[in-house]
Design a protein around this nucleic acid. Structure first.
Length: 492
RNA sequence: GACCCCAUCGUCUAGUCUGGCCUAGGACACCAGCCUUUCACGCUGGUGACACGGGUUCAAAUCCCGUUGGGGUCGCCA
């Protein structure tokens, strides 16, 4: 194992966002491709919003995507793993506070006695005067006796931002330079004694010996603060990689309210985890093998190379995702696909238990080339189970109101009854012969009969579906269809 | 508002660091055609982009400056 150590640090405050998923995927790929360690740390310090069930969801989402971690807390039935824990941030409070104390002692931090009210007022004043809303440094150089004089007054601990500038050599964004005076002395411990995010991440990343911090570029400005903190604490400064964020189809930040913001929405919509992995990576990374887009998770680990991460934000494109999902469905083995399909069919009320395994595999086979998502299996096969309850209006108009359709349907019925071997091949042969002898295109036979057998215009191949339906049922449905055509009202 | 980041077909992008091979390549989408039992798959072809303005240079998508547009940060949220 190499010394690469990366982490993801989701907050269990809601569902697992698509942006979190992208970050997780890149971190995971980086770790796996470099033989490094992938750490999962739960940032659950926001006691108001953090809930255990949200942590369970993170676990579920990661498992679904096929992302495994090497170190992490015990949660959602997973045991704790790793020696640098605890991996739940709320359990690391003493560590954070101890480090804040060190900062205080080394003169890199100071106690601030300003009240929230004072600060809010000051901020408003700054905004009114169009000044940057910054801390005014009032308590920065308070003499010891003044501090003593405050007695037991509550105080926050602020980091004393050093002079000079901070330069970040970001793996994605390149060199980013900021004057330190752009930052005010930010709070690292609240008056109530809670450590603030900036302190907590840096202490955790430092103590967990994280070598590469890979996260969304909404943290780019924060990273400057974090680097100063790393240096003040005497930790090795990790390398940073700030990934562009995932935008929605209109180029806006992917709002939590939008369908699809929740990674698991895609599972529910019938997308494969391997598709999501593949798609998320493509949204901001290109392989060195030019033009290649289709990858299995294993192939991604092989091909991944962090130098090819892009720096501009990408919009989520549903059409491309659908295409990619179709490709992934086609790459699956029939057995695996069948296994993925059955629960979906059951949920939709299709009683798959009435069919044997060979039948189900054949069904899978004839749908594999056609369905864009797993969920499409339901409209593609429901007629096998539910029978034909109604005929779609449009294809009726298109196929059943044509001249001579009853004659052709009758001829097909006869052909079906006389076919010796009820297989797709034999049926095709028989229909083709019919089409030739009557001098009418094959489509004039297959389209009307598809409607009779399925009630729809779209579905699996006609002969294959007829084979699976069985001779008796197919013939019965043909008869019903013919009766229906004869009962059609003349068109207005 | 201040600071930071970004900017190539409708979309994801290659090419930018290390100017010339770029009359800008691929993929999705779209259009046309082929294949074909529907839809789909597949195949062939097509439409379609270097945000704008200045420089530098024999030569710029590529380097520099400015403008515009988008995003982020500026919390006792994470």
């Amino acid at each position: 194992m190499s010394d690469v150590r990366v982490r993801i640090a989701p907050s269990p405050t809601g569902f697992f966002h698509i942006g979190n998923a992208k970050t997780a995927v890149i971190n995971w790929l980086f770790a796996r491709s470099r033989g490094g360690t992938f750490v999962l740390r739960l940032e659950d310090t926001d006691t108001e919003r953090s809930k255990p069930e949200y942590a369970d969801i993170i676990c579920e989402a990661l498992h679904w995507l096929g992302i495994s971690w090497d170190e992490g807390p015990d949660f959602a039935g997973e045991p704790q793993a790793g020696d640098l824990g605890p991996y739940r941030q709320s359990e690391r409070r003493d560590l954070h506070l101890g480090e804040a104390q060190r900062l205080l002692e080394s003169g890199n931090a100071f106690k601030c006695f300003c009240t929230k009210e004072e600060l809010d007022a000051e901020r408003e004043r700054a905004q009114a005067q169009k000044r940057p809303p910054r801390y005014n440094g009032k308590c920065r150089n308070l003499p010891a006796e003044d501090i003593d004089a405050k007695g037991g007054a509550p105080f926050a601990i602020r980091f004393k931002v050093p002079e000079g500038q901070t330069i970040l050599d970001d793996m994605v964004q390149g060199t980013v330079k900021t004057e330190n005076k752009e930052f005010d002395d930010f709070i690292i411990v609240k008056p109530n004694g809670d450590p603030v995010f900036h302190l907590a991440v840096v202490v955790d990343d430092g103590l967990m010996k994280i070598t590469h911090v890979i996260r969304g570029d909404d943290h780019l400005s924060n990273a400057m603060r974090h680097k100063m903190l790393f240096e003040a604490l005497g930790y090795d400064v990790p390398k940073f990689a700030h990934l562009p964020m995932v935008l929605d189809e209109h180029g806006k930040k992917y709002s939590k309210r939008l369908h699809g913001a929740n990674l698991l929405d895609w599972r529910d919509d019938g997308y494969l985890p391997s598709t999501m992995l593949n798609y998320l990576v493509l949204l901001g990374w290109t392989p060195s093998e030019e033009g290649r887009e289709l990858f299995t998770p294993e192939e991604l680990i092989d091909a991944f190379d962090e130098t090819r991460l892009g720096k501009s934000a990408g919009k989520f494109d549903l059409k491309k995702l659908q295409w990619l999902n179709g490709q992934h469905i086609r790459m699956m083995s029939v057995e695996a696909l069948c296994e993925a399909l059955l629960p979906i069919m059951k949920t939709a009320g299709l009683d798959t238990a009435t069919k044997d395994e060979a039948w189900l595999l054949r069904m899978t086979e004839i749908c594999q080339e056609k369905i864009p998502t797993l969920n499409d299996i339901v409209p593609y096969t429901e007629f096998f189970f539910n029978g034909v309850t109604e005929y779609e209006e449009k294809p009726v108009k298109k196929n059943w109101r044509k001249e001579g359709v009853v004659e052709r349907m009758d001829a097909m019925l006869v052909a079906m009854e006389s076919v010796s071997d009820w297989t797709a091949d034999a049926l095709k042969e028989s229909f083709t012969a019919l089409s030739e002898s009557m001098g009418v295109g094959l489509g004039q036979f297959t389209n009307p009969s598809r409607l009779a057998l399925t009630g729809k215009a779209v579905g699996p191949g006609l002969f294959e579906l007829a084979e699976l339906l069985g001779r008796d049922e197919a013939i019965r449905r043909m008869r019903n269809g013919i009766a229906h055509i004869q009962a059609l009202e003349p068109q207005a």
